[in-house]
């Protein structure tokens, strides 16, 4: 029998919160240790790392702007994971969403808001379909979604790279990039001079809707039932096959949306490899948030803060951006091992 320790709900909450905080704290300690090892002027580096992201409205705005696609992607991951599915193809799905939006915007110049909506819908449709395919393969032939999402993502990255480098390349720049979309497609900036734009509102809405969907709707309830115990869900008459596909569709669509908003809000063109890391980082954000929508906002902000800190430290002192990767790796390691959380919950064995 699986042992389940007896805790009050509050105690359970506090202990799991402690687990997360311990992970965050440990990774920050690792970061400081790494800076002392790598930097000749460690105090300057540390100061610019931690204070840099808050040095100006411009820095703050850009930091939050970076958190937006991560949060949206993480919401998708949370939906997939809570239903017992896996979507680790975020890299390709974000990239595809970005390219599709760019293509629509370039094809329909001057359409304004209508064009934006069409572009977002198209990117969600394409990325959602890709993830749906993985869900369907699992439902139909029990092919591991872990493998199909990852492999399909790699293919998509290569296809998008080709599209950006050849059919849609802008010959007038030195970058491998598409042309820029026209200004009627640019999202409204809400904190000038930074790039923070109304995509932030969309991210907040996504989080809120996902929360209500999971906890306040029948479909969300059934989705969680399937994720918690598929056997039980089947017994209770839930169509478990639907929940192998629907959450995948949603997670793919949200990745696509994240990529699309990054284009319309921040980059305004698909630059080759611009989104590298976004898919993985969104997965990491979802992991830190333990797949709870409400926790995704702070998790995404923390993640963006580490990223901005590394950029700032790179700019003002002698450390390189790779310092951020060290922190990310530490977090990834700690979370996937879950040791701290398990110790905090008093579980030695599962």
């Amino acid at each position: 029998m699986r042992k389940i320790e007896r805790f009050s709900v509050l105690e359970y909450f506090v202990r799991s919160l402690f687990g997360i905080l311990a992970i965050v704290l440990l990774s920050v300690i690792m970061l400081i240790a790494a800076i002392f090892l790598l930097s000749d002027q460690p105090l300057t580096s540390i100061a610019s790392f931690f204070a840099g992201p808050f040095s100006s409205l411009y820095a703050i705005g850009n930091m939050i702007d970076h958190a937006v696609p991560l949060a949206i992607g993480a919401v998708g991951i949370a939906l997939a994971m809570r239903s017992g599915n896996m979507n680790i193809g975020g890299e390709g799905q974000v990239y595809a969403g970005a390219l599709v939006t760019t293509i629509v915007a370039l094809a329909l110049p001057g359409w304004g808001l209508t064009g934006i909506l069409v572009a977002l819908a198209a990117s969600m449709l394409v990325s959602g379909s890709v993830a749906t395919l993985s869900g369907w393969l699992r439902e139909r032939w029990n092919v591991s979604d872990l493998i199909t999402t990852f492999l399909l993502s790699n293919i998509i990255i290569l296809v998008v790279d080709y599209m950006v480098a050849y059919p849609f390349v802008d010959p007038q720049t030195n970058l491998i990039s598409t042309r820029f979309v026209d200004p009627s497609y640019h999202l409204l900036i809400i904190l000038p001079p930074s790039q923070l734009n109304i995509a932030l509102c969309i991210a907040l809405v996504c989080v809120l809707v996902a929360h209500l969907f999971l906890y306040r709707s029948r479909t969300g309830f059934e989705l969680r039932m399937v994720g918690d115990n598929e056997e039980f869900a089947r017994y209770a008459g839930v169509d478990h096959r639907l929940y192998r596909i629907l959450p995948m569709t949603l997670s793919g669509a949200l990745y696509g949306l994240g990529g699309a908003l990054a284009i319309l809000g921040t980059y305004h063109a698909t630059i080759k490899g611009f989104s590298a890391g976004m898919g993985w980082n969104a997965l990491l954000v979802a992991l830190i948030a333990r797949f709870k929508p409400a926790a995704i906002i702070p998790a995404a902000l923390f993640f963006a803060y580490i990223d901005a800190g590394a950029r700032s430290a790179m700019f003002y002192s002698d450390v390189t951006y790779e310092i951020a990767y060290i922190v990310q790796a530490v977090i990834f390691f700690l979370i996937s091992s879950s040791i701290l959380q398990r110790i905090a919950l008093g579980r030695r064995r599962v």
Partner: peptide, 11 residues
């Protein structure tokens, strides 16, 4: 099988 079919232990 009350533990795995009849309920969802973690819920």
């Amino acid at each position: 099988d009350r533990l795995f079919t009849g309920c969802s232990l973690s819920a």
